[in-house]
Every structure is written in structure tokens, then in C-alpha cells.
Amino acid sequence: MMKTHDLAVDGLRELNQALHDADTLKDAREWRVVNSDGAHNIACGINDDISVDIDGHAGYYCAGMNQKASVTIHGNTGVGVAENMMSGCVRVKGDASQSAGATAHGGLLIIEGNASARCGISMKGVDIVVKGNIGAMSAFMGQAGRMVVCGDAGEGLGDSLYEARLYVKGTVASLGADCIAKDMRAEHLEELAELLASAGIDEDPASFTRYGSARQLYHFKVDNASAY
């Protein structure tokens, strides 16, 4: 049964409480949120494989710490969409503000528009697919997971990267410290094709470049001091 929650009338606390409440969710597996109007913390902390459609723009931390749920935002999102997501899928139809998917451990974040600065900062296992461009300092200290960018990347991509893998089709304004371009081997083409398919994006994996950690900052060396 599809339930519609009017945020302007029914309130945010009531929405999130309902989305956390196993009894309520027994018969209500599909949710539609209207009049979101950029409100913060919509649909955060869900722990069930329900689906939530937000009709309009969302504010900060939309679908924060998501587990299992499928959340679609039919608009733009503010800072930290799907921050610290564990599993499930969050799809942004418009643009995402800074720190999209920050520290997320798992799941799939799809941004159909552009993502601004610090997309995937400290990512810990999430997969992020961006149809448009990403801003400066994206994937900063990225630990694990994959990021796919069909457009261009801003300054300092992958600075202080650990083991996250980055695939960018367009130009990279500059690479951050310890981030380098790497060969696309067969397993990478395969991985990228899967990621694009799971996001429903039709692009040729061979047109992307892979970036990853040069692993020169893993242990302090005096010769690298300028990078600290």
C-alpha cells in the first residue's frame, strides 16, 4: 500500500518515526513524501527494505545512515545526502550538494545531476555513480568502495586516498595528493560496466579512466613531507 506523507502538514518527526516503526511498515512498504521544500533529515535512519519517494528538493542529510531502503529524491538534495549509508539505494534525480555519500559504508548512491564538493569524502565501501560532474576534493580520504563519474571532476580528486577506486569519464581538474591514474584492466571494465548497469546509465566503460591510491602516504616518509 502506498502511503503519502505531507511534510508540511504531518511533520518530519512523525515521518521518521513512522519509517522506523516496524508495525507501521508491515502494511506500508511504499511511501511518498510531498511538500519536502528542502527540509532537513528526511527519511534518515531507515532500517527496512521499503521504498520512499520524495517529491521535491530535500535539505541536509536526506536518507542519512540508510539501511536497506530505496529512497528516491525527485529534486536536489542538500549537504550529506545518504551520509554514512550502510546498504540500500539512494537516487537523486537532481543535483546533490557537498559531501554526498560522506563516510558511507555500503549501498548504492546515484546522482543523476551534478554533485558538488567533497562527494564521497571518507567513503568506506559505498558505490557512488554520478551522471554529471563532481566538485573539488571529492573522494578525499576514500577508504573503500567505488565512485563513477560520467562528467568531470573538480580540483584535488582523491586526495589522501586509501583503497577506494574512482572511475572518471571526463576531465579531472587536478589530482589530490597520492592519487594517480591507473590502468583499466579487464576486471575494472567489468566492475564499471556492472556499476553503470546498476545505476541504469548507458556509457561505454572503455571511455573512463581509473584513479586510485599511489600508496605513498601509507607510512610517513620524510620525502613526502610536503604532501602532509
Binding site: 518530519l12 518527526r13 521518521n16 518515526q17 522506523h20 532537513h40 533529515n41 534518515c44 535512519g45 535539505g59 541536509y60 542529510y61 542519512g64 545512515m65 549537504v79 550529506g80 551520509e83 557537498q98 559531501s99 560522506a102 563516510t103 567533497r118 569524502i121 571518507s122 578525499f140 580520504m141 589522501s160
Partner: peptide, 27 residues
Amino acid sequence: RSACRHPDWTGPDDLAIKIAELREITD
């Protein structure tokens, strides 16, 4: 090396929203 700043907020105006998020998640 851990970061010195939180990755998704800076300053008290944004912290207010972050605290609200943590409250929402923990009801």
C-alpha cells in the same frame, strides 16, 4: 590519519542540523 573536521558539517549552524539528524535517527 584521522580528519580534523567533520566531513559533512562545519560550524554551529550546520552542527544544529547534524544534531537534529542524530536525534531523528535515534528517535
